[in-house]
């Protein structure tokens, strides 16, 4: 019965030709999709960092990012630091918090049993989200952006703003830095060894605990950055990162949970799909549902995403 209704309503969707042939609208939504996609990609990168090193999904990643964004708020709005400085300070602070969390709540567990660790991250999600609600209350606030909303390039309603450029640029810089870190440095080598074979990494004298702690710190810093990129477009309130987390999870699943390039591609695909579908099919309420649909379709075709390696099952 519900399905019948859904079918009839699908028939009435406004897929008018002028909308589809409106080049400016396409371009405008394309730019918005890129901007959103970049922010999803950056949080997805944080998720991938943790998955690569530990083999589980940190469901508290969004909450850590939320905490980071509030720290940005404290440093910039309350303390009056320039926004870019505030973001860097918040990234460092959230990295320290993440190291503390890893040390206290994650390291005591044997790293090869994933389920308890996933549960612990769900617990952390509850604690951090509630704690943020307690400390900063549920009042909405606005957060300044690092990039201006003015558009250097404009065609009608399609505006390529500095913010879009900045968001994309930030993500590519992060990916580039991560690539260099992983491929060219000793800590990156250790990190990859741990993610490849934990026991062997220990047998090479690699201190697994501190390597994973480093991964957590890095992931949290990237998460904070993604929050600082996305929140200025929305309003700062304690559930703001949850929606972003959903899209980022979708992005990470799409790209493959252990592929950084995949995370970026996935983020952009999710951002674009979301904006284009919502505009051209009038699906504003279904924005989240499109994320599910996209994940489902891709995972059915490729159970480990576009670029994920087919791993031994670890759950």
């Amino acid at each position: 019965m519900l399905f019948c209704r859904l079918a009839t309503t699908l028939g009435t969707f406004d897929i008018s030709l002028d909308k589809l042939s409106d080049g400016e609208l396409w371009l405008a939504q394309f730019f918005r999709g890129l901007s959103d996609g970049a922010t999803y990609a950056s949080l997805a990168l944080a998720l991938v960092m943790i998955y690569k090193s530990t083999g589980f999904i940190n469901f508290a990643q969004g909450s850590l990012a939320l905490l980071g964004v509030y720290l940005v708020y404290v440093f910039s709005v309350e303390q009056g630091l320039p926004i870019a400085v505030a973001v860097v300070c918040a990234m460092v602070a959230s990295a320290l918090v993440a190291m503390f969390i890893e040390r206290t709540f994650i390291r005591p567990f044997p790293p090869n049993n994933v389920l308890p660790l996933v549960i612990v991250t769900l617990g952390l999600l509850l604690i951090i989200d509630s704690a943020v609600g307690i400390v900063w209350q549920f009042r909405t606030r606005s957060l300044p952006s690092m990039f201006s909303d003015s558009a250097p390039i404009q065609w009608g309603i399609a505006r390529l703003t500095w913010r879009t450029i900045g968001n994309l640029g930030a993500v590519f810089v992060v990916v580039g830095l991560l690539y260099v870190l992983m491929a060219r440095t000793k800590i990156g080598l250790a990190f990859r060894a741990v993610s490849s074979n934990l026991e062997s990494a220990q047998l090479m004298g690699i201190r697994v605990g501190s390597t994973l702690g480093f991964g957590w710190a890095l992931a949290a810093a990237i998460g904070t950055l993604s929050g600082a990129l996305v929140v200025p477009d929305l309003l700062l309130e304690p559930s703001v990162m949850l929606r972003v987390l959903i899209f980022s999870l979708a992005a990470a699943a799409l790209g493959g949970l252990d592929s950084m390039v995949g995370a970026v591609l996935g983020g952009l695909v999710v951002g674009l799909t979301r904006n284009l579908l919502v505009t051209f099919l009038d699906l504003s309420e279904l924005a989240l549902a499109t994320a599910v649909a996209v994940i489902l379709v891709v995972l059915l075709a490729r159970p480990t995403g576009f670029l994920g390696t087919v791993r031994r099952e670890r759950v």
Binding site: A190, S196, S200, Q202, L203, M204, G205
Partner: peptide, 29 residues
């Protein structure tokens, strides 16, 4: 291991997704 004990585990424990050269580099970590 840092005191100079190397252990070749049963089943070899190589880092399958890293290159041969990277495996040797990790050995000298």
């Amino acid at each position: 291991v840092r005191r100079g004990v190397a252990h070749v585990p049963q089943g070899r424990g190589t880092f399958g997704d890293m290159s041969v050269e990277e495996n040797l580099l990790v050995g000298a970590f």
